[in-house]
Amino acid sequence: MVSSPQRICAWAGPVCAVIWIVGLLVCAHFIPPTDPQATSQEVATFYAEHAVGIRLGMVLLLIGGVLYQPWVSVIAVQMKRIEGRQPPLTYVQFGLGTLFVLLFVLAAIFWQTAAYRPLEDVVMTHRLDDMGWFMFLISVPIVTVQGVAFALAVFRDREERYFPRWFGWFQLWAQVVFLPGTFIPLFKDGPLAWNGMFAFWIPAAAFTVWMCLTTWALLRAIRVEDPHRTLETVEGPRNSAMA
């Protein structure tokens, strides 16, 4: 029973990813992303033509963004089991994961605002579209340091009681794949633009795999009994009988 809330929080990760995909792909038609080289009129027209879908999609994106927080929380719980009483890496992961939720929500709000009155000021709509994509992708270093902190905690679990060692290397690999999104302000076309192969498509696929595999690892770790708790359970009745 103790682990049930943890399982719920762990499953919030893949649920979050599914909601994002539905919101961005099915509702908002944001996949593929808008063209960074498009004119203000073209961007505003796109928002006007898909206004209802974008508004609904951004509502889903907000819901998905909030569900990222329970997932971050259960990662912190499992990291603390490794680090013990003084868990700096746990706090780093939890703090940055929480900050990422805020930035993700802000991206949805920018896009939502752009779709609210898209044709009244096409330049403003264009700028809000820019801000949304920047907020959505450029915050990659936050996730990177979050993942690195998690990886370092996994490496501290030398007995591999909670996480296998290869999972720590997977965490580091994922963060390297995410990093190209940091450079989108420097490009309006090519693989490093916000609709490019290295800045969007590969990181988006890797992020989905990262969330799913991390969820699997969390569910596996949750099932592992805490040796101290097991010892207390065994010794508890014995101490009561002696008393």
Rank of each mutant, 00 (worst) to 15 (best):
S73T: 12
G57Y: 00
F155R: 05
T34F: 02
V59R: 06
E49F: 04
Q69E: 09
P70D: 04
C212F: 15
R85C: 09
V234L: 11
Y162W: 13
I222P: 00
R223F: 08
K188R: 13
Q78C: 10
V177P: 00
F136K: 09
A108P: 02
P237A: 05
E235S: 14
G190S: 05
P180R: 01
I19A: 13
V101T: 12
R55A: 06
W111G: 06
W166M: 09
E120T: 10
F178P: 02
T214G: 14
I19C: 04
F30H: 04
A76H: 08
T113R: 06
M135G: 10
T214R: 06
L152N: 03
L96A: 07
I184W: 00
V52D: 14
P191W: 06
R81S: 09
T39L: 05
E120R: 09
D189Y: 05
S139Y: 06
A153H: 02
A28F: 01
L219M: 13
V145M: 09
I222M: 12
L128Q: 03
I8V: 15
G181D: 02
G84S: 06
T215H: 04
V74P: 00
L128G: 01
G53Q: 02
T45G: 10
G190D: 03
L218V: 10
W201D: 00
F100N: 12
P70V: 02
F46I: 01
V234W: 10
P191K: 02
V143W: 07
M211V: 15
L102A: 15
M1L: 09
R85K: 14
C212E: 08
W201T: 02
W210Y: 15
L106I: 15
I21K: 04
R81F: 06
W133F: 14
R238G: 04
I184P: 01
P191E: 05
L103G: 13
W201A: 02
Q171W: 09
W173K: 06
A153G: 13
G95Y: 02
W194D: 00
R117G: 08
G147T: 07
G236F: 14
P180S: 08
V209C: 15
T45I: 07
P36F: 00
R165Y: 13
D121E: 10
F94I: 03
R156L: 09
L119G: 04
P14T: 08
R85Y: 11
D130M: 12
L179G: 03
E235P: 02
I75W: 06
A204H: 02
I54T: 00
M197G: 03
I31W: 05
Y116K: 01
A153P: 03
R229A: 15
V101A: 11
R85T: 13
Q41E: 15
G132L: 01
R117H: 13
F200Y: 12
A17K: 01
A221F: 02
R7M: 12
S240Q: 14
